[in-house]
Design a protein around this nucleic acid. Structure first.
Length: 330
DNA sequence: TTGCCTTTGAAGACG
DNA sequence: CGTCTTCAAAGGCAA
């Protein structure tokens, strides 16, 4: 079963963390106790909402002003007021919640600290989670979004667009190109990414798990049923035995380690194009449509996303000896 | 100092 | 409507 790491989850607001419970994940971020509500019905306090951060983007210390009172101002004034507006962050999605919670645990068990590597581990662990376990996080994320929308009724994700000075477009284009090139090159890795696409980790069992006699300790012990329901989990283990446990992130070594998932691409292509393989969808560690969800999960609003985009198809590690990989997702 | 890396999911933008 | 893009977290690393 799933359990929270004892103190492993680094609460962003320790003073306000109630206890190590799943619910605290949500309440911690969007606890009304912390928020000067933008919503009349919500409790009030002077403590800023966690989603309001001193920005990546510069944030004026001036009092947050979300009031609609500011109207009919000159463009310059409006612009200034916009700059004064607190940076309300996006609510965390299910995976982000999972990452937040599990990161400390993974970091503790690994010697790794690089988030990129940790995130790869977490991504794999996420896939290895049973649907029931994932459902918890989808539900949490749903609650977060709901609470967020209550706290900031007028907030839109659009508000944060461009707030990060990123050049992701270029990066993602490169990734798309890389994927396409990999497909076209039939396994030959031809990456045009600005930086080489790095596989930080061996496909599975990313850390030395000393006390693990039957698999990585990091792997949340997905229930047997989950393992059955999730072909990706067993499939992902193939290379965990085959790959050395080098976790270096040095480019040179990364390049050598970047041997992992042209198989992803073919699997993704198959998954997205065929939609189903025979009677059994190949990828079940992804949330399934409601119809296939356990009855218990259906008692609450949909915990799993109803749709599965092609680019979100689960990267399945196929039983291939070695595969070239650029990036396993997107 | 700043952005990238890396992950998944949600949502906005766009054709 | 389907696809693409951006942003959420996080900390090391490179420029």
């Amino acid at each position: 079963m799933y359990s929270l790491p004892p103190g492993g989850f680094r609460h962003p607001y320790p003073a306000l963390a109630m206890n190590a419970s799943m619910s605290s994940l949500v309440s911690s971020r969007f606890s009304p106790h912390m928020v000067a509500p933008a919503h009349p019905g919500l409790p009030t306090s002077g403590i800023p909402h966690p989603a309001i951060v001193s920005p990546i983007v510069k944030q004026e210390p001036a009092a947050p002003r979300l009031s609609p009172a500011a109207s009919a101002k000159s463009p310059v004034t409006v612009k200034k007021e916009e700059e004064k507006k607190p940076h309300v962050k996006k609510p965390l999605n299910a995976f982000m919640l999972y990452m937040k919670e599990m990161r400390a645990k993974v970091v503790a068990e690994c010697t790794l600290k690089e988030s990129a590597a940790i995130n790869q581990i977490l991504g794999r662990k996420w896939h290895n989670l049973s649907r029931e376990e994932q459902a918890k996080y989808y539900e949490l994320a749903r609650k977060e979004r709901h609470l967020h929308s209550q706290l900031y009724p007028t907030w839109s994700a659009r508000d944060n667009y461009g707030k990060k000075k990123k050049r992701k477009r270029e990066k993602q284009l490169s990734q798309a190109q890389s994927q396409q090139q990999v497909q076209e090159a039939d396994g030959a890795l031809v990456s045009k990414s600005k930086k080489p696409c790095i596989q930080y980790l061996p496909p599975e069992k990313p850390c030395d798990s000393p006390a693990s006699s039957h698999g990585s300790m990091l792997d949340s012990p997905a229930t047997p049923s989950a393992a059955l329901a999730s072909p990706a989990a067993p499939a992902a283990t193939h290379s965990e035995q085959a790959q050395p446990l080098s976790l270096t992130t040095k480019p040179e070594t990364r390049a050598q380690l970047a041997l992992h998932s042209a198989a992803f691409l073919s699997a993704k292509a198959a998954a997205s194009s065929s939609g189903q393989m025979g009677s059994q969808p190949p990828l079940l560690s992804r949330p399934l449509p409601l119809g296939s969800m356990p009855a218990a999960l259906l008692t609450s609003p949909p915990s799993f996303p109803a749709t599965l985009h092609a680019h979100q198809a689960l990267p399945v590690l196929q039983a291939q000896p070695l595969s070239l990989v650029t990036k396993s997702a997107h």
